[in-house]
Amino acid sequence: MRRFRLSAEQDFGTLSISEPDRRINHLMAAFNLSRPGPSTFILAGISGLEASHVWISIPFSMFYIIGLLGNFMVLFVVGKEQTLHKPMYLLISMLALTDMATSTSVMPKALCIFWFNLKGITVGGCLTQMFFLHAVSVMQSAILVAMAFDRYIAICKPLRYATIVTNARIAKLGLLGLIRAVLFILPLPLLLSRLPFCASNVIHHTYCEHMAIAKMSCGDITVNKMYGLVVAFVVLGQDLLLVAFSYSLITRAVLRISSKKAHQKAFNTCTAHICVMLMSCTFFLFSTITHRFSQGIVPHVHIILGNLHFLIPPMLNPIIYGVKTKELRDKMSKYTCRR
C-alpha cells in the first residue's frame, strides 16, 4: 500500500489534492473544446407547434407557390416583350429573381420538415443555406437602392434620364450589388466554420440563420456577433439611408411643382417602390427584433415571422408592380386574359 501511494504521488504530483476545482473545470473545458463537432444539425421546425406542422404548411406552401408563379410571370413577360426592355423593368426582373431565390432557399427544406419530418441537415449544407439566404437579402437591398436612384433621376432629371439610366448601367449596378453581397456575407460561414460545435446540435428553427448557428457553439462568438451587427447596420442601414435621401430629394423636387396633377403623377411613379420598401423593412425589423431580443416572446412567434419575411414580400411584390405599373399590367393581361 505504501509503495502504491508513493507511485501515485510521483505520477500525479502535479495535481495535488489541494488544487482548486477550477483547474479541473479548466481541463474539462479544454477536453470539450477538442472534441469534434457534430456532422449534422437538426432543424426542429416551429418549436411548440410541432403537432400543427402539417396545417401550418398549407398557407406556407400556398404563399410559396403564388410567389414563384407571380415572379416567373414577371420574368416571362419582361423577357418576351421588347417594349419592356428598359432599365425600370430590368430592375423589376432582378427583384423577381432575388424574391424567387430567397423563398426557395428556405421553403423546400421547411416543407420537408413539415410533411416528412426530415429534420437533418449537414453542417456544410447548413452553412451553404445560410450564405445564400443572407447574400440574396443583401443583393435585394442593393436592388431597392438602385430602384430609388432610378425614380430620383426619372422625377428630378427627366430630360437626362435616357442618358444617365441605361440598361448597361443598371446591369453594372446589379453586378456590383452581387459582388458586395458575396464579399460581405462570405466571412459569415468562414467565421462559423472555425467554431467548435460541442453543444446541442438542434436548431430551433426551419432554416439555418447566422446567430442561431453561432449560439450552438461552446466557443467565443463575440466576433460573429460583432460582424453580424456590422452587416446589419452598415450595409442594410446604409442602404436605408440612401433610399431615404433619394426620396427626400424627390419630395423636395415634387413640392416645387405647382400643378397638383403633376404632384400626383410624380408620386404615382414611386408608389410601387415605396410599398415594396415598407413591406420588406417591416418584416425584416420585426424578424430581427424578435430574434435578437426574444426574452419573454414565445419561440414560435419569431420563427413564424422569420418565415413570413421570406414568403410574403416575394408573393406580393409582383402583384404590387403588376397593379401599379400600367405598362407591365397591360402586357401581363395580354398573356393571362387571352381568349
Rank of each mutant, 00 (worst) to 15 (best):
K334H: 13
N117L: 05
V301D: 07
P108G: 00
L97F: 15
S103V: 04
V234I: 15
I170N: 00
G237K: 12
I257T: 14
C126K: 03
S34E: 13
C126M: 07
I221F: 04
V254A: 04
L249H: 09
D99M: 10
Y227L: 03
A253I: 04
H291Y: 10
P314Q: 07
L159R: 06
P158E: 06
S333M: 13
L84W: 11
L285S: 09
E209F: 13
N268E: 01
L75E: 01
I56A: 03
Q82C: 11
I42S: 02
S258D: 15
M107L: 13
L255Q: 11
S258V: 14
Q129E: 15
N268Y: 09
V231P: 01
Q295V: 10
H210D: 10
V234W: 12
W115P: 02
G228T: 06
M211Q: 09
Q140F: 14
K260Y: 09
L127R: 02
V223G: 02
F72N: 11
C281Y: 08
Y247W: 09
H53Y: 09
F12V: 04
Q129W: 11
I24W: 13
H263S: 08
A146V: 14
L241H: 07
G48E: 09
L229Y: 06
I274S: 05
E209P: 03
K119E: 10
H263T: 07
A30M: 07
R180H: 12
